[in-house]
């Protein structure tokens, strides 16, 4: 029984990782950037939510919408201001810029909101019992929301015009441009979409963990990236799978071994998977042409 509830816990946090990982994977696929600032958007989303609820006294649904909008806009803005000028520079300069943006977001929020943690209410209180077992509503909601988003996203990427443009740009942006695809818009859209997903993740995170602070995004972001790499960068089902694997292993380690070792186990799994399958579980392997 404890085992089952730990699995469910794992699915819950795993779903949150997965939502963040989806954005990571999309952004990486399209600009080949390990976007360190992506995780910090979770923090921004959480603070916007908190601000809307407790400072402006807005309704939860409105705060959520505002949070998603702000994060999407911020994602686009960051890309335009900080990453776009470096599109033709060495990749590592881009990486350092991303680290810089991450520092900036964290420290700005410490300035504005102070380093003290803030509390947020759970929008989905209560428990339901399924087959005799008790589950928190928020757990069910979290898992359900991420499954729906994951399916919706896969359909979008496969079938819509924008989805096809995204795939084309991530395959080869020069050729995509020649085919008449607006590369800038596609990249902007990807950042907006990825950041929007992170905002959703931050809402779900706040509901389950209720406490937020300026540096909350960095470890969450890294684990989400680990999830994306584990599942296979560029693969949306991979990001989902990676997130869930990490969530479950983390929660089982916390329950049965030691909560302090959870991070080590997460990275241990990543190392083992990468050494066996360097392109991740569902990733395509790319062979350099000689």
């Amino acid at each position: 029984m404890i085992f089952l509830s730990q699995i469910i816990n794992g699915l819950q946090i795993g779903s949150i990782y997965a939502l963040v990982a989806l954005g990571y994977s999309m952004v990486y696929g399209i600009v080949k950037l390990l976007n360190f600032a992506h995780g910090d958007i979770i923090m921004v989303g959480s603070y916007v939510l908190w601000f809307g609820l407790s400072r402006l006294g807005l309704a939860p649904w409105l705060s959520v919408i505002i949070s998603i909008t702000v994060c999407s806009a911020l994602g686009m803005l960051i890309e335009k201001v900080a990453y776009k000028p470096l599109r033709n520079s060495p990749k590592i300069s881009l990486l350092i810029t991303a680290i810089g943006v991450s520092y900036l977001l964290q420290n700005l929020s410490q300035l504005i909101f102070t380093p003290n943690p803030r509390m947020l209410p759970n929008f989905f209180p209560g428990y339901v019992s399924i087959g005799g077992a008790q589950f928190a509503v928020v757990t069910i909601v979290t898992i359900a929301v991420s499954v729906v988003i994951m399916i919706g996203l896969s359909v979008m990427v496969k079938n819509t015009k924008m989805g096809k443009a995204m795939r084309a740009v991530s395959e080869n942006s020069d050729v995509a441009q020649l085919m008449g695809i607006n590369v800038n818009n596609t990249i902007s859209f990807t950042f907006a979409l990825g950041s929007g997903l992170v905002a959703v993740a931050s809402v779900l995170y706040c509901c389950s963990y209720s406490q937020i602070e300026p540096t909350m995004g960095s470890m969450l972001g890294i684990k989400a990236f680990v999830a994306a790499v584990l599942g296979g960068i560029g693969s949306l089902p991979g990001a989902m799978l990676g997130g869930i694997i990490i969530g479950i292993f983390e929660s089982l380690t916390k329950a049965y071994i030691s909560s302090q070792l959870a991070d080590a186990v997460v990275f241990g799994i990543l190392i083992i998977v990468l050494l066996i399958r360097p392109s991740g579980i569902l990733g395509k392997s790319i062979r350099e042409k000689v």
Partner: peptide, 19 residues
């Protein structure tokens, strides 16, 4: 403000001197 400035310096140097 110093960490904010530090982050900004970092971003600006990278944008204007990528190498």
């Amino acid at each position: 403000y110093r960490m904010v400035v530090y982050a900004l310096v970092l971003i600006l140097v990278m944008i204007y001197r990528p190498s």
